[in-house]
Design a protein around this nucleic acid. Structure first.
Lengths: 353, 353
DNA sequence: CGAACAAATCGAATCGATTCGATACTATGG
DNA sequence: CCATAGTATCGAATCGATTCGATTTGTTCG
């Protein structure tokens, strides 16, 4: 009977142990390798496992007993599709997966929309990385805190007690702006990342800046203002080439108001601005200089080599992953603020005339 | 002591039940909502939970007891970064996440490299979608089969008993090729997706085609051969614009051997071919026609409107997700082969002269 | 030859919930 | 007033493994 049942249902460690003529505890030791088990016994256990088609210890039972699931959650503020349109996010994600290698953990994608049975509130995760920062993050964070799940926030302030991994948005932009000023530019415009959760497209106004929910966007604007106090511009509806192109057309179409340089808050936006300039018959950088941010290789932008601020996206992710590893080990790592590196490409030059 | 311990350690359902003056079973019923519990009791349980900072039932214990983890695994053949460079894969992933909504499950990213503690061999997943097909997939599949985990394969043959979700690669390419023939083209070349796991770049040779490990690539080549039996070309090292550009330069540089039309096996490759043509001073489609595949919006390709075969990527993912849902419900869904739709853009035209 | 020690193995408790069958209790109808 | 039905609650078994302390077995040394 036991045998028949075992043949039908999936075998358990106990079944394997019984067939090998050892106790369940010994079989467990044989599988985990953490304990003194004689070579002969180990082999007998493995043989029994093979005979019974036993696939190894059930991960669910393991995670209950060990109190670890071996899974790290990544909370995205949007749906999957939107998140992976952004190369910086992908690099961050890749960095995280690299940072948690010591854990040997998998990456569980979660959104903070809260729908679905497995939400951030009840996912079997050991730790969580929050990417970006949406307004409803607060609730998410409260849930995780109750559960005692370690968290890090990447580019966003999730709470005073939560470690942040960020970059020098303000200072990096300031350095980029200074480069433009040194070249002789004074009529400069911004193409910013979205300011609000609705991603409203349109001209940059003081009111809209005040209501910003994106720290990244605001910090980068502030950095530009240090050099060009009165700088204005437009906000894009997303960080992609097409949005950059639209913004570029808006800024560059009118020869009367046309700036001699554009500070784009991402490389994708910068690429779009370049396309817009081309469409309008303007040469880059002769007629208009374009500065980017991120340092991602924009697919298909060759032969342009974008002047930009190279941020260590993958390193950010890695740092986040490593911080989580440390927290799981009981340590209390500190947040990190990375520095971006200025890269002088061929898309900036002194203004014409 | 119990109270002190409970205050220190995380509270369990039993602690909550004790404080509410009910049994653990009743408290469980109150939380799950599946069973007759009086309103008064429910409230008392929730109050106790709040007082103890209880965050709800432990998902690890739940998944052991219920035999379900609420997680669907997605097996990628490469590292995260590489996978998400491909817009088609992103759409598929997004489709999967949509398809499994009834499950309310999360998506766990796994790679079949087998490294790390949580590999496909021991991840707490209820079902798995295999995206793309790498040679070492066989081992992965064997593991999952032992565990009795339902699987679907997207664009790839993983085993005779495994459901496949695919598209009409051969026929779709044939239709695209026919369009070119009808326009009058006869000197046509291919830019193919990678053929082997090493993603070797280079001219297409019979030997290399024979050793192909990518069904998708081979099927699309076969479709082109139906119309242009002797068609040759080059293989790209990946599906991106830069690889397409390199391939395009290789094909178009020499005026002697230059084809009048190029069949690219992805839109990104097609975009790269267009860039190469521009660099060489060739007009598209006047001097060279370019056909794509996928129907993804290539960011920044405007004002070109690529002639291509629009495949339903998101639908593929959704179908895969839905098939998994059905399998988990004990049903036996069948595989699906979707059809691609020809889209006539402005990158194809009759050959010059 | 017996004591002391190490290595291998085993038993039993445990992780935190779910769920089925049993029980206690309340309302209804005869 | 008792039988019957029905509802709310409880006890105990269970999911499948891990782990600690205890026990057995075999070796070495005085």
């Amino acid at each position: 009977m036991t045998d028949a049942a075992a043949a039908h249902a999936r075998p358990t460690l106990a079944d394997v142990a019984a067939r090998a003529g050892v106790s369940a505890s010994t079989a467990s030791l044989a599988f985990s390798g953490s304990g003194p088990v004689s070579e002969a016994t180990r082999e007998r256990v493995f043989a029994a496992a093979k005979a019974l088609d036993y696939a190894g210890p059930d991960p669910r039972a393991q995670s209950l007993r060990r109190g670890r699931s071996g899974i790290v959650g990544v909370v995205l503020e949007e749906r999957v599709r939107a998140a992976f349109l952004d190369p910086v996010k992908i690099q961050v994600l890749d960095g995280i997966s690299e940072g948690i290698v010591p854990l040997g953990a998998g990456l569980l994608l979660l959104t903070d929309t809260g729908e679905g049975a497995v939400s951030v509130a009840n996912a079997p995760v050991d730790a969580v990385a929050l990417i970006g920062c949406s307004p409803r993050l607060a609730h998410t964070v409260a849930q995780l805190r109750l559960r005692g799940i370690p968290m890090v926030a990447i580019e966003g302030h999730a709470g005073d007690d939560i470690i942040e991994i960020s970059i020098d948005n303000e200072d990096a932009t300031r350095r980029g702006a200074e480069h433009l000023r040194e070249l002789g530019h004074s009529r400069v415009a911004l193409v910013t990342l979205p300011l609000d959760p609705e991603r409203t497209r349109g001209p940059l106004t003081p009111e809209r800046e005040d209501e910003s929910t994106s720290a990244t966007t605001s910090e980068r604007i502030a950095g530009a203002r240090i050099v060009f106090p009165g700088i204005g511009g437009v906000t894009a509806g997303a960080s992609d080439v097409e949005e950059g192109r639209l913004a570029g057309l808006a800024l560059l179409a009118d020869p009367e108001t046309r700036p001699t340089a554009v500070i784009a808050q991402s490389d994708l936006l910068a690429a779009g601005v370049i396309r817009a300039a081309e469409e309008l018959g303007l040469a880059v950088p002769a007629d208009v200089s374009v500065l980017g941010f991120d340092g991602v290789r924009v697919d298909g932008l060759a032969p342009y080599d974008l002047t930009t601020l190279v941020q260590p996206s993958a390193a950010k992710g890695r740092a986040a992953g490593e911080a989580l590893v440390q927290m799981l080990a009981g340590e209390h790592p500190e947040g990190t603020c990375f520095s971006s590196v200025f890269h002088r490409g061929n898309t900036t030059a002194p203004p014409a005339r």
